[in-house]
Design a protein around this nucleic acid. Structure first.
Lengths: 240, 240
DNA sequence: CTGGTCTCGTGACGCAGATCACATGCGCTT
DNA sequence: AAGCGCATGTGATCTGCGTCACGAGACCAG
């Protein structure tokens, strides 16, 4: 088949190998069939906008491949990146359920494969499949949980350094291996974007990184970042 | 009947007059019956703690009367008030659904009547009543929405003045009448608490209020606050 | 009336970090 | 090679506001 944007498309949810490990996608047989019937498999290039903050909800987007940047922005153009969504996540779910405008803006940062479901179709689907409805509730709880963490990080931090340390720890716990002593992670974001994630300025991020390198807490080769001293980071994150 | 803490208790959900106007409580007949059977009507004095951030979820709390302060707190004791919950709200819902620890701490600030439902009972209830399950999803969307607003207010504001203006506008739009020119609102919170709501210090709040009064934007008599110049507030809130 | 606790009001000081303004380096294309 | 665009370093300056310190008014108990 065709591979737009260099993607190796997952053709059907029914045969998707990753399905069972993805919270939302792991539906019961009948629900899965019904979902398959109402979803539209789509592909986007890097930099595409799935939806914009404030738009009326057209429906939801299940991310199958690639990463999506979720952000909110102020009238003056200042942007806060809330999260980088990974495959398996459902985007625009809350707006689709409540009917209120999308709270965030979603923009692809890789070529992405996405399953789109129209709002009407999805609501009907929920009425008919109560097990899916429960999955939605779980998924929303998850999102709410994330938002609470975001609030805590933003609202209760004393310094930019603290927020950066928290971010690095979160990244390392997500894709850093638990056993390995020195987690290394691919840094696919620019200083500017990191700044937008922790609500500070680009220069501050640059200075903080320089400081961390000088103090041997981290080390970077190209776009790979190695955390040499995790406990130092933890100290920075917990305290002031 | 007895009236602990001076409360005029609502005896049963089946006869509750306020039920239909409360999003979550407005259940279908069978669901309502089932809910009635698993809930425990309880009452708390002012200052009681319903649950604490980090606790494993025992269940959820439907607030029938009184107000509850929802907050998160840092290890150093600094706290951020996320919201003052009003009657009709469901507290601890997300934790109860997901099984993860409570994200917030809930403390009554009035004498309160509360319906408590044990987690196991509630999950069973959800499996059997898919309409209630959908209501839960709606409720969670609502909460997520609120959290997003909180994130925006905290993360995208340039100054403490901006955040205070946003807070006052939100309050006036909530219980200020739409038609009346000069919304007045009961200020039941101390400067300290307001500071904790916008993530700043008490002194700053005091100074900001002094400033607003000097500039005739607001006016206060006792605990009543009158907004004289809403557009000035909006300017402060939108800009920098 | 007196002493304790709580909230509010205000001055003084210091610092984290936003902002501005460049310099540098790295990878493109043409 | 040369030139352009983007990400990164780094210094200088300026300011919002956190923190400390203290005084005053309100309320309650004894």
């Amino acid at each position: 088949m065709l591979s737009p944007y260099g993607l190796d498309l997952i053709e059907s949810c029914l045969t998707c190998k990753a399905r069972t490990e993805r919270l939302f996608c792991d539906l019961s047989g009948p629900a899965l069939q019904a979902f398959e019937a109402i979803k539209y498999a789509t592909a986007y290039p890097k930099g595409a906008v799935l939806f914009v903050e404030g738009q009326a909800p057209r429906g939801l987007f299940v991310l199958c491949k690639g990463r999506v940047k979720l952000s909110i922005c102020a009238t003056d153009g200042k942007t806060l990146i809330v999260k980088i969504a990974e495959p398996g996540e459902v985007l625009g779910l809350s707006a689709t359920v409540s009917g209120k405008p999308y709270e965030l803006t979603a923009e692809t940062i890789d070529p992405c494969q996405v399953n789109f479901v129209k709002r009407d179709d999805f609501l009907r689907f929920l009425k008919e499949h109560s097990d899916a409805c429960f999955k939605v509730a779980e998924q929303l709880s998850e999102k709410y949980n994330n938002a609470c963490h975001e609030v805590r990080a933003l609202g209760l931090s004393h310094s930019a350094g603290e927020k950066l340390a928290k971010l690095l720890l979160e990244w390392s716990s997500r894709n850093g291996e638990s056993a390995k002593q020195e987690p290394r992670l691919k840094l696919a974001l620019t200083h500017e974007e990191i700044a937008q994630m922790i609500g500070t300025s680009r220069e501050t991020v640059t200075r903080l990184f320089a400081d961390l390198k000088r103090r041997q807490v981290i080390q970077s080769k190209g776009s790979t970042l190695v955390i040499r001293n995790k406990s130092a980071l933890r100290l920075m994150a917990s305290n002031n």
